[in-house]
Amino acid sequence: MDVIRVQADDFSLATEYEACATEAGRDCGAVAAFVGLVRQADDDAKVVGLHLEHYPVMTEESIEKIVHEAHQRWSLQHIRVVHRTGALNAGSQIVLVVVASSHRPDAFAACEFIMDLLKTEAVFWKKEIRSDGEVWIKSTAGDYDRRDGWKNTVASSLKR
């Protein structure tokens, strides 16, 4: 059973990794993990922190959809996604993705895919609190390009 959590509290990579390896079982040969952090500077302005908002239930459902698609594309034993909300200081952890598979190509690819889709498809709003004011962040053209790059990949050809 995959784990998707949206929470104000911080998370521990070590704890989530252990849980992932346990859930994945004996066939697991690869665990890939990604942690996203609040950058401390952007466009030369100091970033004091982020304020994240979500829409309870709809946000979790949007992540479930991404996780489901990852399973359709690759052979994966377990996925964990933890995403924080609320006020986060610069340098804080924001998001964690951990993926277990028998082999590294699937684990690496799925981890990258899930992160790319979280950027454009997960129901969150982020406000950057900067030294020069506050600004609601939007997905960039680069974010959409990365998402579309996956769309153009035929899922069945990737599945081992």
Partner: peptide, 25 residues
């Protein structure tokens, strides 16, 4: 909690949400 791109018909108790552009991660 389902995005409606076209028209819709509201019923009692519906939850309508106005969503600015989203970004996670």
């Amino acid at each position: 909690r389902n995005i409606e791109k076209g028209d819709f018909s509201l019923e009692a108790g519906d939850e309508i949400a106005f969503l600015p552009p989203i970004t996670g991660g």
